[in-house]
């Protein structure tokens, strides 16, 4: 008797195991971030398939639920190969996978995170990918239970002209109410409240905003640093 399931997934990280095997960490739609052994995953054919960011169909089986288990994987969309020649998009893909790998708990369903990551990977083909990346991290925070409340100003209750986020509460603050404390508040890019695409400076603000809360609520309590790939992405928008 064995346990098995099939699911849609995105490859988050891969580690070589032995000479031709690999341990793949996948973000699945219904089973969350789930590792498994892929026989031949470190070999010639498996390496192309098991690239971070690739959308796959995965079949997992093990004798007991708590075991590592083994995956059989088929490629659905080769997102990694599509962005390899584009340094910015490749950095974003690597950052998205690294942040998912670092923040999502293992074997805990997070379907909203899966949907957000899949949407971001699809958006890599468009020019709107930087804004969608920030939305992916916002969705990740929300799905992990640390969502930001950007519906109205924490001080005045107004829903317009929101320009800051309180680092203490994660609630939006209007420009007027936040003016006296603007140095201590986090900038809220307009595209997060009004939709549309953000300019480079707004993307930078968005990345700083999500990084602050991911670090405070998820990474720091686990004594983990921000993944280097995510830091490199933020660096691209700083310059």
């Amino acid at each position: 008797m064995s346990i098995q399931w099939a699911d849609e997934a995105v490859v988050l990280a891969v580690q070589r195991h032995g000479e031709s095997g690999a341990i793949a960490s996948l973000l699945t739609r219904a089973h969350g971030r789930h590792p498994g052994l892929v026989h031949g995953g470190g070999g010639k054919s498996g390496r192309g398939l098991l690239q971070p960011g690739n959308r796959v169909q995965a079949w997992w089986h093990a004798r007991l639920a708590e075991q590592l288990g083994a995956y059989r994987i088929e490629l659905v969309t080769a997102h990694a190969a599509a962005v390899m020649d584009d340094p910015a998009r490749l950095a974003a893909l690597a950052a998205a996978c690294a942040i998912g790998e670092a923040t999502l708990p293992e074997r805990e369903p997070h379907p909203a995170a899966f949907v957000a990551l899949a949407a971001f990977l699809d958006a890599l083909a468009s020019e709107a990918w930087p804004s969608v990346y920030v939305h992916w991290e916002m969705a990740l925070l929300r799905d992990l239970g640390y969502g930001l409340d950007l519906s109205s100003c924490a001080a005045t209750g107004r829903a317009d002209d929101l320009a800051y986020v309180s680092p203490r509460t994660g609630r939006a603050v209007s420009r007027e109410a936040g003016r006296p404390w603007h140095e201590r508040l986090l900038a809220l890019p307009r595209f997060l409240t009004e939709g549309g695409e953000g300019e480079a400076a707004e993307i930078r603000d968005g990345l700083s905003l999500t990084a602050f809360f991911l670090d405070r609520h998820v990474l720091a309590p686990q004594h983990r640093d921000m993944p280097a790939a995510r830091a490199r992405l933020a660096e691209r928008f700083r310059s």
Binding site: R47, Q51, M84, D85, L90, A91, R232
Partner: peptide
């Protein structure tokens, strides 16, 4: 031609660009 390999290539290329040397990469 992997995510790690190409990320490394881009980082190296960005590091070398200010030196004024021609930088190329293998075809895939």
């Amino acid at each position: 031609a992997t995510v790690e390999g190409q990320t490394t290539a881009h980082v190296v290329a960005e590091h070398l660009t200010p030196l004024g040397v021609k930088v190329s990469a293998l075809a895939h």
